[in-house]
């Protein structure tokens, strides 16, 4: 896809989303749409580190929930507008990414992964003990009835998420084709050879971790307003971590489009399963799809399509 067409499509998507929003009066559409967009944002964020550099982050829930809880805390203190909360959430999670990364990225990738898994557990313990944001009993957040642009607040949240998701995908796409993208791909394929080719591997991995963490924090910041009641078990729900990993792996990790496809597909599958079977079953489906794809089609849907077209990439 050429640059012009990509940007035209992105802009069109935002416009169509906005128009649809004006026409739709059913609040459920915004709730569902927000959920899909949130996962596109999370999956894209994960993929910048996991897909491009090959470092698996199991701690999505930690970065995401941190963004949400920074938002709860700031809202309680000053009640600033949503964009400020989003920036604050992003900065907080980016800093955690920087800290985690600088401590563990010198080691093999598997140790980074284990550390992120542990991070999710420890941050849940911290939040559970932080009484100011509700501790273990959770926090109620007052969702304004009307958004600053007119329309309901859910509608406003939906647009905000739409803009962030499109921006994140654009960022991922830019990274993929840049010098940074080639460096990350070299790290993913062979770290020692990347070093020997002059790639400052540690620096690039840190950069990717911070970018990925920041986007996850930004994704979490509007969450308290979306759910209106937030407690640690729901903010740190394992479903976030599993979905965020499953989506890029199902869609295809090497490219920006993979996480988008995976996020749309898996959200639709889960929404359908939730209605027709049960909520436990839909998580099982995600797990099976993920394991099925990584064992049978390691390059995801994108890889399958390319294979059909006869391109080996």
């Amino acid at each position: 896809m050429s640059n012009l067409r990509f940007w035209a499509c992105g802009l069109l998507l935002v416009l169509v989303g906005w128009l649809l929003g004006r026409l739709v009066s059913n609040e459920y559409a915004f709730f569902a749409g927000y959920s899909v967009l949130q996962y596109i944002l999370l999956a894209t964020a994960w993929n910048i580190l996991g897909g491009y550099a090959g470092y698996v982050n199991f701690g999505t829930a930690a970065f995401f929930a941190l963004g949400a809880y920074v938002s709860v805390a700031l809202n309680k203190l000053y009640a600033p507008p949503l964009p400020v909360l989003i920036v604050a959430g992003g900065v907080a999670s980016g800093l955690i990414g920087l800290l985690m990364g600088s401590l563990t990225l010198k080691l093999r990738g598997v140790f980074f992964s284990i550390a992120t898994l542990a991070l999710a557990i420890v941050s849940q313990a911290v939040i559970t003990n932080w009484e100011f944001v509700g501790g273990s009993s959770g926090a109620y957040v007052l969702r304004p009835r009307v958004g600053p642009l007119g329309g309901s607040y859910i509608e406003y949240l939906f647009y905000t998420m739409l803009v962030m998701a499109v921006a994140a995908v654009a960022l991922a796409r830019t990274v993929e084709r840049s010098k940074l993208g080639f460096g990350l791909a070299a790290i993913r394929d062979d770290e020692a050879a990347a070093e020997a080719s002059g790639v400052p591997t540690l620096k690039l991995k840190l950069l990717a971790t911070v970018a990925s963490g920041t986007l996850m924090g930004m994704a979490g910041a509007p969450l308290p307003f979306y759910v209106a009641y937030l407690d640690p078990p729901s903010a740190f729900n394992l479903a976030y971590a599993v979905n965020t990993i499953a989506m890029p792996l199902v869609g295809g990790t090497g490219t920006w489009i993979g996480p988008v496809l995976g996020a749309i597909l898996l959200t639709v599958v889960q929404e359908t399963a939730m209605v027709t079977i049960s909520s436990a079953a839909n998580l099982l489906i995600v797990g099976l799809l993920m394991v099925g794809f990584i064992t049978l089609a390691p390059n995801g849907i994108v890889g399958m399509v390319r294979k059909l077209r006869g391109d080996r990439r």
Partner: peptide
């Protein structure tokens, strides 16, 4: 080699 990159891209790194 960088297995997921093309031969030319291997040199581009």
């Amino acid at each position: 080699p960088f297995g997921s990159l093309t031969v030319a891209e291997n040199l581009r790194v």
